[in-house]
């Protein structure tokens, strides 16, 4: 298959304007553009729909309130009262991933969440933040997080390394989950789109129908992954408060 037809071609980064700062290439790329669109959509939507601040909401205001309540509920269910402080962060994370995924569903738009470096950065922020939070809350006692009570003592040499590894792999699992889902979904769409073009006569209708169905599934996954990202962040914050 020629390089220009590769299903992975859609993930290539094209610089829009070349910028260099201190020897580093910080070009404004299609990925940056997608982030810009995402941020604009979120900020404008959440600002304009709640502009009137009416007690009886308009339909658009209701959407903003629903999102607000959705994350607020999620946070209070998993973390409790301690979680209120982290609401802006979790909400921003959820909206950023959700709208980033949704922007990626627009044909010819770039999906920045399909790049491991982006998702890994987001997951690292969560991981580092939660670890710092754990040390602030528990000090050196935070290390007891890796000690599982109620287990026979001879199991500890085995279990503690496992716990440490599973803790350290959190940012990897968090980022790879989102990245892989986006990558797989978009690649699959592109592969079937290739079938539509290459199949003879009108038989291309079948892969096209599949693409339509798959697009619906992808939209569901876009939401689901944002939700998973947010809920895991909440659970990690909860772990930083309650060790076991």
């Amino acid at each position: 298959m020629a390089a220009k037809d590769s299903p992975l071609k859609q993930f290539e980064i094209d610089p829009i304007s070349n910028i260099e700062l201190g020897g580093y290439n910080i070009s404004f790329t299609n990925s940056s553009f997608a982030m810009l669109i995402t941020v604009l959509v979120i900020t404008l939507f959440l600002t304009l729909t709640v502009n009137t601040r009416s007690i009886i909401p308009t339909r658009m205001q209701l959407i903003s309130e629903l999102m607000y309540n959705f994350i607020a509920q999620l946070l209070s269910d998993t973390v409790g009262d301690n979680g209120k402080k982290y609401f802006p962060f979790v909400f921003s994370l959820f909206m950023f991933v959700l709208i980033g995924n949704m922007v990626g569903m627009i044909p010819y738009q770039f999906t920045f969440t399909s790049h491991i470096i982006v998702t890994f950065a987001l997951a690292s922020v969560v991981f580092i933040g939660v670890t710092i939070l754990g040390f602030i809350n528990h000090g050196i006692k935070f290390f007891t997080f890796f000690y599982i009570p109620g287990v026979p003592f001879y199991m500890h040499p085995l279990l503690i390394p496992i716990e440490v590894i599973s803790y350290l792999s959190r940012p990897i699992s968090l980022s790879v989950r989102l990245f892989a889902n986006m990558l797989a979904g978009h690649t699959l769409l592109k592969v079937f789109a290739g079938f539509v073009v290459s199949m003879p006569f009108f038989t291309g209708v079948f892969p096209l129908a599949f693409i339509v169905a798959l697009t619906g599934l992808e939209i569901l996954i876009a939401f689901l992954q944002a939700y998973v990202f947010a809920i895991l962040t909440c659970l990690y914050i909860n772990d930083a408060y309650h060790l076991h």
């Binding site: 992975l8 980064i13 941020v39 790049h115």
Partner: peptide, 24 residues
């Protein structure tokens, strides 16, 4: 796989930091 090409890693991280911080 374009994801593993480190050419634009710094650029992506930089703009992610800018936009996400602004959003937050």
């Amino acid at each position: 796989m374009p994801q593993l090409n480190p050419e634009f890693f710094v650029s992506q991280l930089f703009w992610l930091a800018v936009f996400f911080s602004f959003l937050f």
